[in-house]
Design a protein around this nucleic acid. Structure first.
Lengths: 222, 222
DNA sequence: ACTTTTGGACTGACCAGTCAGTTCAAAAGA
DNA sequence: TCTTTTGAACTGACTGGTCAGTCCAAAAGT
């Protein structure tokens, strides 16, 4: 059975993955189903504990199809990573640019990126979880893929920080890479906790709390 | 070494680590070796990808010994988690109390806890990595252990925040649980990035950068 | 016509957990 | 003092099961 027309696809929507130049529409749809199945299972159980048979079954596809579309289990996973982080960076960059066009400050840009990050995690919690679980591992096959992909995402934040320093909006003494990592961590962990332990809260609510922290409006009475 | 003659196997559970009521010194040493071997391997490869044979080999012990000391691979892992987080929470609490005794403000207490967190991660990077990788997973055997252990750690931060609000030092509008999670995330991710990508930097250096962020000294020149 | 998917049997490696047997230092006995 | 016994701790070969990856002829889709 095919997916109903127009039904949204999990990590999908990004056309023409760089890894697959000449895929037919049908093939692309199968890949999407496999991504969708794999992302949840791996987020729940981890890569090694997830079997190819499970992925195929959840995707409603034969095992042979998995190997027709991906060279191996690891390759499937790597392409999933690239795909997901591509979406995230695009979204972050877009948020920063939009703020710039509207004449906002760099703090506004950071705030917009915090929100973009929350929106992403809200939409793809399983992907985020899986990404965090793998990011700092060593000795794994997809190590280099992860490094590249991490740098892409963090670089967007670093760029905004550097621009803020250049424009005199941020102190020249801030440590750009480390501050960027800390900001990403702040959003990542707060959002994962939100999704895991207080999923009923609204995005606006969470965003407001993080904004306050970001803008140093923590000290002093209300 | 066998138990000394007549040494009482006290029923009162105040003695020894909670996980090992009546461990001999030899046994305790073996367990320690197994923890050390397991923590690195699992941090590098993940739980499922790490075999019991590997753990035994790295610990310099026969496979049977693993099962003599722990009921299963999962149980070994759970006790490892409890052990590690116990160390962390003790350290965080100690930092907060020390600051309080010295008459520091609540921001000082947070700052001291940030440093304690960094010291911990500096000393046990593998444990931290493994912890982060497992924390938000669902459907796993040690799920409940993780929840308990997470709450212990975050609660220390939450307590300081609440005290700060009560004392009028922090705004009454801050969202305590979420802000605590965000602060933990800030330190966690910054520290893991430090260890993974710039391990040559000093702890003081990293701490200074995070302090600046914590105290909102990011905006403005110099 | 050509591409993609199916289904499911098969292989070979790998691995968690078991268990009969070994080790050895301290306790008991002589 | 010397010998024997005890049993906790440890060993490692073995078992039963699992899983990634292969193969391929037939069917379905475009």
């Amino acid at each position: 059975m095919n997916r109903p027309a127009g039904a949204p696809v999990t990590i999908g929507a990004m056309e023409r993955s760089s890894t697959t130049p000449g895929g037919s529409a049908r093939r692309e749809a199968t890949r999407q189903k496999l991504y969708e199945a794999a992302v949840t299972l791996i987020a729940e159980q981890g890569f090694s504990a997830t079997t190819v048979d499970e992925i195929a079954e959840r995707a409603g596809v034969a095992k042979g199809t998995v190997y027709y579309n991906f060279a191996s289990k690891s390759v499937l996973f790597e392409e999933l990573l690239r795909h997901g982080v591509g979406l995230l960076t695009a979204s972050l960059r877009e948020a920063a640019e939009r703020t710039a066009l509207e004449g906002g400050s760099k703090v506004d840009a950071l705030d917009a990126m915090v929100r973009a990050g929350l929106v992403f995690i809200d939409r793809y919690p399983a992907f985020t979880q899986l990404y965090v679980a793998e990011l700092w591992r060593t000795n794994r096959a997809w190590q280099s893929t992860l490094m590249v992909v991490r740098q892409q995402a963090v670089a967007v934040v670093e760029d905004v920080l550097r621009e803020g320093v250049a424009a005199g909006e941020f102190s020249e003494e801030i440590d750009v890479p480390l501050t960027a990592a800390a900001l990403v961590g702040m959003v990542l962990v707060a959002a994962l906790d939100w999704k895991s332990f207080q999923p009923e809260r609204s995005l606006d609510d969470v965003h407001a709390a993080l904004s306050r922290l970001l803008q140093g409006r923590v000290s002093g009475r209300g």
